[in-house]
């Protein structure tokens, strides 16, 4: 990391509870600009809920969320997405009954044709943006080796391809920060490696920052430059993969008390 002082996302003391259950209970973390940060923790630690809170899908009852310094806690999800923080979901949300290409075009930012007035009064501007977006979509689909499926319904893709589509689609929305919720879950190993390579490439080429939830420790240790560990709704630790893997608390909370030497994980 060249510019470690600039933070892309700052979460401070965020709380989110459902009924009596505090799924996120005062979580605090920072994602540096240009980093690939992994969020790990045992099941039920509140990782996905934290994603939901920072992206506006769950109510934030307390605390602050800042994206590039701007307070966005309690904003609606679509406004947060437009500000450049785009997420994917643990259970992939490919829009199955829409063609792959429409999935992509849907996500294109700044399409004037999403306003009824412009559909009627500015058809040229709408068509021009549509052409541009289509070209970009084709390029992305090619990069993710999905171009053959462009005109097929997204529901016909395999689970792994849907994950790729969701990532490619998120990129259409011009994100600065991408939140990926278990991008490797249910993906076969070779597609998984491809996904991780894409992450590295997008960070290098487009300067996109990543925060991803993952249980695959090999991917976490080899592909992230910071690891944040959650347990019981709080962030209990964050640091370099090496430091985190060696920490007693992580071994207790996450690896179930069984000491695993670092060499075995990495």
């Amino acid at each position: 990391m060249t510019d470690a002082s600039r933070s892309m996302l700052e979460v401070r003391d965020v709380t989110c509870s459902f009924g009596g259950l505090r799924a996120v209970d005062g979580a605090t973390l920072t994602v540096e600009e240009g980093s690939i940060t992994a969020l790990i923790g045992p099941n039920g630690a509140g990782k996905t809920t934290l994603f939901n809170v920072v992206t506006g899908f769950c109510p934030c009852q307390r605390g602050s969320v800042r994206l590039s310094g701007r307070e966005i806690a309690r904003w609606a999800p679509h406004r947060i997405a437009r500000l450049g923080m785009v997420r994917t979901f643990q259970l992939t949300k490919a829009l199955s009954a829409m063609p792959v290409i429409d999935n992509m075009l849907l996500a294109a930012a700044d399409q004037p044709g999403e306003r009824l007035v412009n559909v009627v009064l500015r058809p040229r501007a709408v068509r021009a943006r549509e052409r541009e977006a289509r070209e970009q979509a084709r390029e992305l689909l090619a990069a993710f080796r999905l171009e053959r499926h462009a005109d097929e319904y997204a529901g016909t893709l395999s689970g792994g391809q849907r994950k790729l589509l969701e990532l490619a689609r998120a990129l259409m929305a011009r994100p600065r920060l991408l939140l990926l919720d278990e991008p490797l879950a249910g993906v076969n190993p070779s597609l998984g490696r491809e996904l991780l390579r894409h992450m590295q490439r997008l960070r290098a080429e487009d300067g996109i920052t990543f925060l991803f939830i993952e249980h695959d420790m090999e991917a976490v240790m080899n592909h992230s430059d910071r690891v944040v560990v959650m347990a019981e709704g709080r962030v209990i630790l964050s640091g370099s993969p090496r430091a985190v893997a060696a920490d007693e608390r992580v071994i207790d909370a996450y690896l179930g008390g069984k000491h695993v030497p670092l060499e075995e994980i990495v």
């Binding site: 609606a76 406004r79 997405a81 437009r82 994917t88 949300k93 999403e114």
Partner: peptide
């Protein structure tokens, strides 16, 4: 139109549409 595409996306999965702005 792109407007109609958003409608269909909402029909399919409202949260996906919201997550895309």
């Amino acid at each position: 139109s792109p407007w109609g595409r958003v409608l269909r996306a909402i029909r399919e999965d409202e949260d996906a549409a919201r997550s895309l702005g």
